[in-house]
Nucleic acid binder design. Structure first.
Lengths: 205, 205
DNA sequence: AGCATAATGGCATCGAGTGCCAAAATGGAA
DNA sequence: TTCCATTTTGGCACTCGATGCCATTATGCT
């Protein structure tokens, strides 16, 4: 279970000290297994650490909290979304751009879908995670707000881009909940439809 | 600091056992004082209990968690919102109704405003409370979704009313954050403007 | 005075999270 | 090979939120 020494980065000076005995991804897999069998709340950090063959203290060097385990490498994914926004044609209407990017950001390979569903079931249904996730959503909103602000010639902190980002997040969450409740449907279709409703002001007249 | 015996409900059979030694409201006031001086995180439940002259164990009979203290009597307020929705003229366009009710729901007497601001500063700025508040927001959304569903001839769980509720919540939160950052402005004006943006699809064309 | 009722608060326990630090592992240099 | 610098590990102690258990206290009724 030790990392392969040949994994070293080519450019980097060869590493010095002791090698990490596991990885975030590996811990995530172990943890998800336990969550699936015992449930999230009933799984203690000790359980995860023991199952992964590390000390409890070490677990907290890989993840800030037990909650964070379920979020995987979300921060890196956000970079992708930011990049997708940057690539939007300047003449594309704001809400069209938001819709297409959000839909795109939530596209997954068919073989990743079951895993993603399990992740989202935890995030959206376990109260402790529902709560904690709010903090992650802030980063997501910021990416949307940055883009909206740029397009509207405002600053990120301004009311309109912030409200837009908040509303877009809400729409996406509603779409996700629907997706969890209706396994037959396509996530991207649901998000697309919901973002259209949002852009249409939910039929306001 | 003992409740007045003459506080008894007229219709109720006279109470039997020992009288409560404090009240949620009183605890809330004590707690807010401590939060203001030491900060939320640095204030322990022991601090609050001691300051209120009760045992730590008793505190948890008045509030499920330390987080819950800041929410006061939110559940009862929600009943008011539900009622306001029920009173909306049937011919009033959906998003107009949502806007006016949400604006109305967030109107406060001028003398309540400073207290409300302190409450919302905690809720929106302390990470632990930001996270925990998500759970409270669910109840708020449900009220909006119920109304939207009724108006749209759908069920509460359906995608559109849920998305609408989520988006309305988002808009309201953005408005609140703006209000906290701009003490000079009127909360109801900010919310009204933000809800109009939402109903207008943020200028989608 | 005695009884039923209701709130209190101490005690023990669990689990998340953190600071501290000695021990283990590893590559490079003498 | 030996020693050193570096990095990770994991045990220990501690804080704090939260919960179950239960004897104690206060209160009104009979």
């Amino acid at each position: 279970m030790t990392a392969n020494p040949s994994d070293r980065q080519p450019g980097a000076t060869t590493r010095r000290g002791r090698r990490p005995s596991t990885s975030p991804l590996q811990l995530e897999e172990v943890a998800f297994g336990l969550f699936a069998s015992k449930g999230f709340e009933a799984t203690t950090v000790d359980d995860i650490a023991t199952a992964a063959g590390i000390g409890r203290r070490t677990f907290f060097r890989y993840f800030e909290s037990k909650n964070d385990v379920v979020w995987g490498s979300f921060a890196e994914h956000l970079d992708y979304m930011r990049q997708r926004f940057a690539e939007c044609p300047p003449d594309q209407p704001l809400m069209d751009a938001v819709r297409t990017v959000v839909v795109d950001f939530n596209r997954f390979d068919p073989d990743e879908v079951p895993w993603h569903r399990r992740r989202m079931e935890l995030i959206l249904r376990v109260p402790a995670l529902q709560a904690h996730s709010t903090l992650r959503y802030a980063a997501w909103r910021e990416v949307v707000a940055e883009f909206a602000a740029r397009r509207l010639g405002m600053s990120v902190g301004d009311l309109v881009p912030q409200a837009l980002a908040y509303a877009a997040l809400g729409a996406a969450l509603a779409a996700y909940e629907h997706w969890l409740a209706h396994p037959g449907e396509q996530l991207s279709d649901i998000i697309d439809s919901t973002m259209r409703d949002l852009a249409g002001g939910f039929g306001a007249r």
